[in-house]
Design a protein around this nucleic acid. Structure first.
Lengths: 339, 339
DNA sequence: CATCTGCGTCGATGCGTATCGACGATGATC
DNA sequence: GATCATCGTCGATACGCATCGACGCAGATG
């Protein structure tokens, strides 16, 4: 950390290039035609001085910050790895468009959105982990800048929402087990703690799974248990108690690490002694002793699409809409082939 | 998202309050004495208009952005939960000082630091996961704004570095085992992948552990194995092969989840059949079947101290220095009491 | 009563960029 | 050869705030 010369300004560039400051500006923005010769001279001067425009001045004059706000949910070690992947994808996409990312915390609530708007700190905001009854929804409707919600509030009228297609994901998972001949499915859902946060995808996933199970004539039981070792053991006890009965299948959310261990200890191998499918990321799945056939709520896909949408919104007026990210089943052999 | 009136400016506040714009500015900054009466009138106007200063204009005129850059390392699912805790603490501390956080990715490298400096996007930067031979070190020395490194490059002359005191942590862990009467310690270190990234704490921790082991007359073996189920099994095989020998102790880094399961499967209970200590966060420790006595590389403490230091640096010229965060041993009963 | 000292406020200016209107030069058109 | 559109560039201005110098007014001092 040392004192150096002040950063070069566009005026400096203009002087070096022998043109006016406004010409430098037009070279950078391309908003007016510039002769090839002038353009080259200016670009050379920019290069030579390693000039970069002052972000504050640019925001002041141009009413654009080239920054997107990202409201990150904290206190969630369970999904931390997914969140990091999400944030990384956001950041990388932003840089590709010469945008930066301002990290905001969910702790600020709706007021945080109002703040960044009034202070003109960013051009748009992405809000992660939106709850069914999220107070930020009302605020988002009032804002003058685009807001994209990851997740779907009950009343999402007038909001730009995007989420993984948990409903189709549920269908795929139930079908995978039903196709293998399962007559009963035991499901280990999200932890109570997560459910309490009111995430919309919880009931959506569940309702969809139940509907499809009913269609297929399969009995589906949701078993409430914490994702701890003890919780998993309890889950297995209650599922496997009527042993050797009618071909049970397991459906788990987040593929708790202890489940693999608990099965192993009981000498049960998924794909041999029982069928297991999971809703979890590929990383989570591969970490299991026997990687489960699974649907992944593609965090990277969601954020990439969200960013694409966002940049579109910055330039064009697009009506509010709910977008879903396609669900795919990845077969990994934790389900017995039929017959 | 709707069109509304333009955001109020300090001039609007001045008009409402019946004072000049500069008076409004001085009320907000406190850099000149203001009578209590005027102050109240102005604050009321600010409140009434829900005025907030334009960040760009403020940065342009005041040469201060009230933003800190945070360079986040990605591609690290292993430590994702620790990183999130770290980032959260940074963000919360920043907001306490009316600062915001700009999220930068390590992918930009040293150029990223130069960029935010020249564009005047933040007043200081925190760099996470600094490697032994980090190219950002040289860049940091050239920058005119404070840079705090989390981690210690080999040549950290002229740099502000802070890190957990891994050396003392190693002493505490080795002592815990030696005090329990262990004559041999098998250590499972960081994954090869992590070591390849050149993190300074890896050799520091290891050398310190070895030195203390030698002092205590304990044999310390580092065993290289991936943190997978198979890797852990191999580790245990090579450690426990000469069964019932001379009271072996296990020292693990990051407390791989599979270790607890593998021990359980072999019918071995830490604190009864063998001694286990770990270098891992409290969250990781509590997630184990038998929570190990451990030293936690307090991510929250490190980031809190880093932010305190940073705000100090913004106001005062402080010579470069290496600061270490105190290590503590948390006893959890995975080590047999002596005798 | 004249002078001095602070305190509290105002006006003016600058920060670096984007953008608008103006204008000279160039080539096309009749 | 005169007229006209088009292209490329310039100068001036606005953006919203922080800061500096100036100034008026109070009370204190001789």
């Amino acid at each position: 950390m040392r004192r150096g010369r002040p950063a070069p300004t566009s005026k400096d560039v203009a002087r070096v290039a022998g043109v006016s400051q406004s010409t430098v500006s037009y070279v950078m923005s391309g908003k007016r035609p510039i002769s090839e010769k002038t353009r080259r001279i200016v670009l050379e001067a920019i290069d030579q001085l390693t000039y970069e425009p002052h972000a504050g001045a640019r925001a002041l004059a141009g009413h654009r910050t080239n920054v997107v706000g990202l409201v990150v949910p904290f206190h969630n070690p369970e999904a931390a790895s997914g969140l990091m992947a999400f944030a990384e994808e956001i950041a990388v996409n932003a840089r590709d468009h010469d945008y930066d990312v301002l990290m905001l915390t969910a702790a600020e609530g709706p007021a945080g959105l109002a703040r960044v708007q009034r202070r003109a700190m960013c051009d748009a905001v992405i809000v992660m982990e939106v709850a069914t009854d999220d107070p930020r929804a009302a605020m988002a409707r009032e804002l003058e800048m685009p807001v994209i919600f990851i997740g779907v509030p009950d009343d999402h009228d007038g909001l730009h929402c995007i989420d993984f297609d948990f409903e189709t994901g549920a269908l795929l998972l139930v079908d995978a087990l039903a196709d293998a001949g399962c007559r009963e499915i035991a499901a280990l859902g999200w932890s109570e703690e997560r459910v309490g946060l009111g995430m919309n995808y919880v009931p959506r996933f569940r309702a969809s799974a139940e509907a499809r199970a009913a269609e297929r004539g399969v009995r589906l039981r949701w078993i409430s248990a914490p994702h701890t070792r003890a919780g998993v053991e309890g889950f297995l006890d209650s599922v496997l108690a009527p042993a050797g009965r009618s071909h049970p299948g397991l459906l788990t959310v987040h593929s708790p690490h202890d489940l693999g261990a608990a099965l192993q200890q009981r000498g049960l191998v998924p794909g041999r002694d029982l069928d297991v499918v999971s809703l979890c990321t590929d990383v989570e799945a591969e970490a299991q002793p026997v990687a489960p056939t699974a649907v992944s709520p593609q965090p990277r896909d969601v954020s990439r699409l969200a960013m694409g949408w966002l940049f579109d919104l910055l330039d064009n007026e697009i009506p509010a809409e709910l977008r879903l990210v396609e669900a795919h089943l990845t077969t990994r052999g934790s389900v017995r082939p039929l017959g």
